[in-house]
Amino acid sequence: MSKPLSSQADIQQALEVKATIDPAEERQRRVDFLCNHMRESGQHALVLGISGGVDSTVAGRLAQLAVEQAREQGIEARFYAMRLPYGTQHDEDDAQAAIDFIQPDEVLTVNVQPASDATMSALEAGGLTFRDDHHRDFVLGNIKARQRMVAQYAVAGAKGGLVVGTDQAAEALMGFFTKYGDGACDVAPLTGLTKQQVRIVGNELGAPESLVAKQPTADLETLKPGFADEEALGVSYADIDAFLVGQSVSEAARTIIEDTYARTAHKRQLPITP
């Protein structure tokens, strides 16, 4: 028997979305969450890759505030912000602006291109083939995302830390993340926030407007640098956010959102067992 489709209200509840938020309250609640979990877990560092988008900018600043709060409580804590470009990032200026705003304790830069390309070369040498260049580029994009997470967990392991994720409700709804790539983390401080709510918290934190309002892009495909999320998703973040807070959306948008949510269910679950 097939499982019935989740209702809009069911999805909103599952993803912990609130229709409205108090920005100052959400900021402090999420800083407290990071600080408390770091203390309770016995870890003393937070690690996050900074891309120059609003999600990592907001999560990064929350992480820095959390370690500063921990230090006020007598805990030796540090935040390691990581730059993880694949070669040269076309919007590197945005990434540096994010770093300047976040003011992390330390910045580590790791170029994931050599490891990503070596993995792809080894796969092709082992017999893996692709439908066309775009299919190959898509698979390589997921390899990049997973190499970035490999690097972050290496730093977390070396420094006794937790990896911070940037997943928010809009991406969770659409399964718009790489499984075991940017979808892998120890703590996810943006959980439950719509894309617009992330921007609202960003404004509360004082993030630069150029980063808060920046067009979102996963920027994983070499053949399409800066490829917009909304083009890849086939629906706007405005519609996704509206759906998440219980508002009406067009039938076309609803169909895309509900179909995508059902199709990407495996990304939001622990490994399936017998």
Score class of each variant (00 low, 15 high):
Thr166Ser: 01
Leu5Thr: 15
His44Phe: 08
Gly126Met: 11
Val150Arg: 13
Asp259Pro: 12
Gly192Phe: 14
Leu46Trp: 02
Gly175Gln: 02
Leu128His: 15
Ser210Met: 03
Phe101Trp: 14
Ala145Asp: 01
Thr191Gly: 00
Ala172Asp: 01
Leu220Ser: 03
Gln269Met: 13
Leu65Arg: 08
Val245Thr: 10
Gly183Arg: 10
Asn142Ala: 10
Gly60Trp: 09
Arg136Pro: 13
Pro271Leu: 08
Ile11Asp: 00
Asp55Thr: 03
Ala154Gln: 13
Leu162Thr: 03
Val110Phe: 09
Leu205Ile: 09
Phe101Cys: 04
Ala77Gly: 01
Gln28Tyr: 09
Val155Trp: 07
Leu233His: 00
Met149Cys: 07
Val164Cys: 00
Gly49Asp: 00
Arg268Glu: 02
Gln113Met: 13
Arg78Trp: 13
Gln197Pro: 12
Tyr237Val: 12
Glu204Ala: 15
Ser56Phe: 11
Tyr180His: 15
Phe177Gln: 01
Val201Cys: 11
Tyr180Asp: 12
Gln247Ile: 13
Leu190Asp: 06
Glu68Phe: 10
Gly87Tyr: 06
Glu258Thr: 11
Gln147Glu: 06
Ala63Leu: 02
Glu221Leu: 15
Asp100Lys: 08
Leu173Glu: 03
Thr273Val: 12
Gly183Val: 11
Met82Glu: 00
Glu76Cys: 08
His44Val: 04
Ala95Lys: 05
Arg30Ala: 04
Phe243Ile: 07
Arg263Cys: 09
Cys185Leu: 01
Lys195Phe: 06
His135Asp: 13
Ala19Phe: 11
Thr119Ile: 15
Leu244Asn: 11
Glu26Thr: 13
Val58Asn: 12
Glu92His: 09
Asn111Ser: 00
Leu5Asn: 14
Phe227Asp: 03
Gly126His: 14
Gln73His: 06
Val54Leu: 11
His44Asn: 08
Phe138Asn: 05
Asn203Leu: 10
Glu40Val: 05
Gly226Arg: 07
Gln152Tyr: 05
Ala70Pro: 00
Ser51Val: 04
Arg131Ile: 15
Val58Glu: 06
Asn203Thr: 14
Leu34Gly: 04
Asn142Val: 10
Leu123Gln: 07
Pro208Trp: 05
Leu123Cys: 13
Ala81Phe: 11
Arg30Phe: 07
Ala45Ser: 08
Thr129Asp: 12
Asp182Tyr: 06
Ser116Gly: 13
Leu220Asp: 00
Gly42Tyr: 09
Val163Ser: 03
Asp259Ser: 08
Leu84Ile: 04
Glu72Val: 14
Ser41Ile: 07
Gly183Tyr: 10
Lys18Gln: 15
Thr264Glu: 06
Asp10Ser: 05
Glu25Val: 15
Val139Glu: 09
Leu233Val: 07
Leu173Gly: 03
Leu84Pro: 10
Gly165Arg: 02
Gln152Phe: 01
Asp186Trp: 06
Thr178Pro: 05
Gln103Tyr: 09
Val150Lys: 08
Arg29Cys: 04
Leu15Ile: 02
Phe176Arg: 02
Met120Leu: 15
Tyr80Lys: 05
Gln64Glu: 04
Ala265Trp: 10
Gly42His: 05
Gly234Arg: 00
Ile256Glu: 00
Gln96Met: 12
Val31Ala: 04
Ile50Thr: 12
Asp10Asn: 07
Gly181Ala: 02
Thr57Pro: 11
Arg78Ser: 12
Gln28Thr: 12
Arg136Tyr: 10
Tyr153Arg: 01
Ile50Gln: 00
Glu72Leu: 14
Asp241Thr: 07
Glu68Ile: 09
Arg263Asn: 08
